[in-house]
Design a protein around this nucleic acid. Structure first.
Lengths: 212, 212
DNA sequence: ACTGACACGTGAAGC
DNA sequence: TGCTTCACGTGTCAG
């Protein structure tokens, strides 16, 4: 599937295939009705051959162009190229959906009030300083949904529109990224955050100022 | 290029091709050296035939799937399908660029700042408790690179393999996510992190344990 | 009748 | 070694 190699193969087999073809054509014509000249008959079939050759070349060029516009290519396979393109398009679709929702929320937030507050609509269950055990905390990054495992979360109202959110979860790669994205997706007004890691767990305390 | 028609053709030509193949094989074997049994020789070639058949089928299925995720299909051509997919991906790329600019413009209502400064990826340059003004702090999420603007960073060695990294930057959406990704990409051992926001800026202090 | 578009079987080449 | 992928030439079918 190397392009240079392919081009070379194309050029190299050009003479060979035409040779093979012409010999085949002569043999076949000799065993077939000779309604026309051999040159004419070979010419009409040769046109078919070169046409098919151009068609294959065009299709391969398109495939290479497709590979060029897709960033993540797993393998150089033809089928894999198409599969990666499909996955990439679906990924872009979901990204676009998410980003449009984000824009909508951002615009509505700016039109209504300051930067994002819809807190009670999103998380009414947080209020009341109840401790809650959550199995999986989904958020969306790009097009995938990763869970945050072993999440324990408690919310306490400190007075003066200040909420304190404390949580612990297992520390893994990207766990912090996920938490930050989750918090930012809720459009909260974070006053301060404190993160500590101990014995493979991640402890986090966030102070949030609510609008109400 | 209809799938059902194609499947039917596949099934229909299955018997036919095997018939043709077996007859061809017998003819060829008869004109070829019979070093082994006819069944063995035909089996090894038949495996190649059925494998190629499966490969073609898989490639076509992928192509149909690609056609399914691309909304605007001009023609049912194989080459046209790929071309439309390429155009669609490029279109999505431009849309995404536009929409990101829109988001930036929307977010710039919070705080407008000029461009910052440059940042070296090398970590050892941080040592020495020098304060550095940083222009753009690139990180990679998926295949893109976003800058973090107005980043001021200072690193101090606290002794006992402990580094204290303090930084301030303009607070925007995903700023925290970017910082977390940047820190995690450096594979540092973060002991604790403290984040505070004040007047549209983000203050962060991280304690890191080094290996050396 | 003639131009594309396609699936097919086949030998070659790379792991 | 066998298994996979590929380009090739060919017959066929629709516009």
């Amino acid at each position: 599937m190397d392009s240079i190699q392919y081009i070379e193969g194309e050029v190299a087999t050009y003479e060979l295939s035409s040779l093979i073809f012409s010999s085949w054509a002569i043999d076949e014509i000799s065993g077939y009705e000779s309604s026309s000249l051999d040159g004419a008959a070979s010419s009409v079939t040769y046109k078919n051959v070169v046409s098919e050759r151009n068609r294959r070349k065009k299709l391969n060029d398109r495939l290479f162009a497709l590979r060029a516009v897709v960033p993540n290519i797993s393998r150089m396979d033809k089928a894999s190229i198409i599969k990666d393109a499909i996955d990439y398009i679906q990924e872009l679709h979901e990204q676009e959906k998410i980003i449009q929702a984000e824009i909508r929320e951002l615009e509505s937030g700016n039109l209504k009030k300051g930067p994002g507050y819809e807190f009670e609509e999103d998380l009414p269950v947080f209020l009341g300083s109840k401790k809650k055990k959550i199995d999986q905390f989904y958020y969306s990054c790009g097009s995938r949904a990763y869970p945050i495992e072993d999440l324990e979360l408690s919310v306490a109202y400190m007075g003066d529109k200040i909420l304190r959110v404390s949580l612990t979860c297992s520390k893994r790669t990207d766990t912090m990224v996920k938490l930050c994205e989750a918090f930012e997706s809720l459009q909260l007004n974070i006053i301060s955050a404190d993160i500590t890691t101990v014995s493979g767990r991640l402890l986090m305390t966030v102070f949030i100022k609510t609008k109400y």
